[in-house]
Design a protein around this nucleic acid. Structure first.
Lengths: 264, 264
DNA sequence: CGTACCTTTGACGGCTGTCAAAGGAAGTGG
DNA sequence: CCACTTCCTTTGACAGCCGTCAAAGGTACG
């Protein structure tokens, strides 16, 4: 297993302190863990969203298919992520969800999430903060893709993963498992596998990054950051100070704005 | 004024029936309308999100800036849209919001939205459905950009606008005002203005589309749809049948799943 | 040990960016 | 109403990044 187990509580408590009740509500979501095998499809395009998942261990991705051979990976999900919120309100999924490695997922009915919305404003806010970060990751990646060349695209994605993994894994180093093939990366970054290969070779020749079949070594973090400015603040755990201390009750009495974004 | 006034009630009631109380809550958001002039900046990157807006009339866009001359337009907002939800939970905006035309906006404090979340589950759901569609528009556009050439990018964007405008404007025809310059389109679609110009000329020569300085004529809707398959269902007003009839109360008793997505 | 998939490398072509220049449209001030 | 400025649009020449096609070697798995 590439990474240890992370539960949704661990993830959401990054955003704000959760009460014992909140933790209990989240544990209820994870009462039915089951193993999932690499390449297993948790849902497909056109399915009606009814079951959500938490990802306890392993990696997964969402795949947007349009015509034959025209596939785009949208999300890469890591342990602790909540799967399916983005498309919950639609009458049909626009993407499929596929396991990238073996792992453990916890399916739960969508209604349970709605019960949380009714019973805990704090958890509701934390879940929406989490969903907003998932969207921000996509947005940052795709903005970068639109405006930079192959070298920058790959550097940006590696920095994204670096910061996301460091957040969930205390034992994390600059040498980590990456269960994505070059074909996966091509479908994520909008390039051909041929060009992915060429560019990885170039990055290694420059001493920035070394990718083997299932590992990545970040050789020069600052060098990568010079290639492309990835701003980890864009997917920060920090909340809008309006919401400091959680949501319930005191929404109308505004908290003092203790710290705006530190100027860079 | 390019388009008539549309209020948030009109927008959100597309998703589900709203009660009189819901309409009243939404009207409270729009108690302070004010005019906004073209190029006016409603917020900037790094501001702390505290005030949200509804867009009553006129167009606006959100702009992601990274370094000098490196700007990307993320959203194009039309009358009736709610501005700022996407970044509400972040400690700082990642984008600026700029008026594309003169218009009328209604600022309201973020706390008011949170009060809605507490008092109306139905409205909460409608607002999140709306936010999810805003995200889906970005996702569809950027997936298309990654996988298609300039002709398809422009065709896709025009079809997106066509369906979005038809939704809010009953008097809408195939000949409509488009307050976007070619420079704006270049920042939206990730191309240079030079290539936008070339490609528009090509599309007109093919009899698909004619763009003048501030108008667009869709000459051949089916022809455009053959260039790139834009699927209006991906940004549909239809809700997940789980939520039919609104949110309150009956969440735990699942409604019968009346109709899955019609097969195409 | 054989098969399927992944990765690497080379040659070639095309789409799109860059650079440059000129014409047109809109707004401003006299 | 007319100069003047500024921004937008168009067109051409050229270069470069990246896709396509092809083939070969490597790795994992049964």
């Amino acid at each position: 297993m590439p990474h240890s187990k992370v539960c949704v509580s661990d993830n959401l408590s990054h955003y704000m302190p959760l009460t014992a009740d909140d933790h209990r509500l989240l544990e209820e979501l994870e009462q039915n863990p089951r193993t999932a095998t690499k390449d297993e499809v948790l849902w497909q395009s056109d399915d009606v969203p009814a079951t959500l998942y938490t990802l306890r261990s392993g990696w997964a991705y969402s795949l947007h298919s349009a015509g034959s051979g025209n596939e785009q990976i949208l999300d890469v999900f890591l342990p602790g992520d909540l799967l399916g919120i983005r498309e919950l309100t639609f009458p049909a999924y626009a993407t499929s969800l596929v396991m990238l490695t073996d792992g453990v997922v916890c399916p739960f009915p969508a209604e349970r999430l709605l019960n949380i919305f009714e019973s805990s404003p704090t958890l509701t806010l934390a879940i929406h903060a989490s969903a907003a970060r998932q969207q921000a990751i996509i947005t940052e990646r795709l903005v970068n893709i639109l405006r930079h060349d192959a070298r920058s695209r790959i550097a940006h994605f590696m920095l994204e993963l670096y910061y996301r993994l460091k957040r969930i894994d205390a034992t994390f180093t600059h040498d980590f498992t990456l269960p994505l093939s070059q074909r996966d990366m091509s479908r994520l970054l909008g390039m051909t596998t041929v060009h992915i290969s060429r560019t990885l070779t170039e990055l290694e020749r420059e001493g920035l990054l070394r990718k083997t079949r299932r590992n990545v070594q970040i050789l020069d973090l600052d060098g990568l950051a010079r290639v492309v400015s990835f701003d980890p603040f864009k997917i920060t755990d920090k909340l809008n100070p309006l919401f400091k201390g959680g949501a319930s009750g005191s929404w109308t009495q505004r908290n003092p704005v203790s710290s705006a974004r530190p100027s860079r």
